[in-house]
Computed example of a mutant assay.
Amino acid sequence: MQNSGWPSVFDGHNDMLLRLAEHDSDDAIRRFFEGRGAGHLDWPRMHQGRFGGGLFAVFIPPTDDRSSIVRQPDGYDKSLSPAMDVAEATSRTMTMVSRLYRLEAASEGRFRVCRSVADIRQAQADSAVAAVLHFEGAEAIDTDLEALDVFHAAGLRSLGLVWSRPNAFGRGVPFRFPSGPDIGDGLTEAGFALVRACNRRHIAIDLSHLNEKGFWDVARTSDAPLIASHSNAHAICPHARNLTDDQLRAIARSGGIVGLNFATYFLRPDGGLSAETSVDVMLDHLDHMIAIMGVDHVGLGSDFDGVYAMPIPIRDVASLPALQQAMHDRGYDAATIAAICRDNWLSVLEVTWGE
């Protein structure tokens, strides 16, 4: 029998703002609250899946993506996208940040932009969705870091230094399977400065998409917990986007967290894209990360609205109870399920944000 008392979920990553930005603002927001939106997320399905909130990403896809997927005998390689112009990135970022605040304004209290864990807990107590502004790539931030102050004042509390393309601060990893993450140079001098500036402002630094040299540069420089919002275990799925056991151990030593990514191509041992994938592979990654890091350092980072295929039976945000049921069936107790689904994220963010 399915448990009706599953804990609410705080999720480390979604790309809903990009989907909303692709449509007329008023119509997209109306559809979001009415439950007539496309994609994986809208308010009725969030309520059904006990989605209490998460990091809402500003992600800017490439407009001139000259890269292509090259099939290989044992996998594939999608090269890095070209760097993006700061002015273009800033314009597109402003559109998505605007969507976030228009959602809040139209929500009648059901959707709230949060700047602290206290805000998140209050929103969840009021059955509202708690949204934290996150940037998936720092292209909209100038190397003088003046924009960082503006975006922080606007609610930015989590920042991924790169997406899977180079920028002024570092270099991402390509979508390559099989491959390790040790691809390319580490942080630039501007990247080191950005890490220190985020530490001073208590902005979480997200290591998902960053290459391995950049990862270790951040680990040596940052005084905050290390966070990978939507990454998996390289030992199970040897994709360039996934984390080695040494990286997982470093995250745990820092008091940080890794959010399980729901994409099949970051989950399956063969790197496959098929949705004909059992939810068991998600639990295999959780088991491995718990064994390496300890249960306190593992969370969820779904990548909803940024995922091509998810394991059956995860269709959208309303399906989150199916994952919790699978955890229960695997033998996870109630405290472990609550820790992975919500509590670990809140604990790490509380430390990171200096509360």
Rank of each mutant, 00 (worst) to 15 (best):
V9S: 07
L17M: 09
L18E: 08
S25N: 10
G35F: 01
L41Y: 00
D42C: 07
R45M: 03
M46D: 10
Q48A: 12
G49A: 01
R50Y: 01
F56G: 12
F59H: 04
P61M: 08
P82N: 00
D85I: 01
D85H: 08
E88L: 05
S98G: 14
E104I: 15
A106M: 12
C114N: 04
A118R: 15
I120F: 13
I120Q: 14
H134T: 14
F135G: 15
A140S: 14
D144S: 14
F151A: 03
A153I: 11
L159C: 13
F169G: 10
L187M: 07
A190V: 06
F192N: 06
L194K: 02
A197Q: 08
R201W: 05
A204S: 15
D206N: 15
D206V: 04
D223V: 12
A228Y: 08
S229H: 05
N232S: 04
A240E: 05
Q247N: 05
R253W: 06
I257Q: 15
V258L: 12
T264Y: 02
L267I: 13
H285A: 09
V298F: 02
V307T: 06
M310N: 00
P311D: 00
I312Q: 09
L320M: 14
P321Y: 02
A322V: 04
A326P: 15
A326R: 03
M327P: 15
T336I: 08
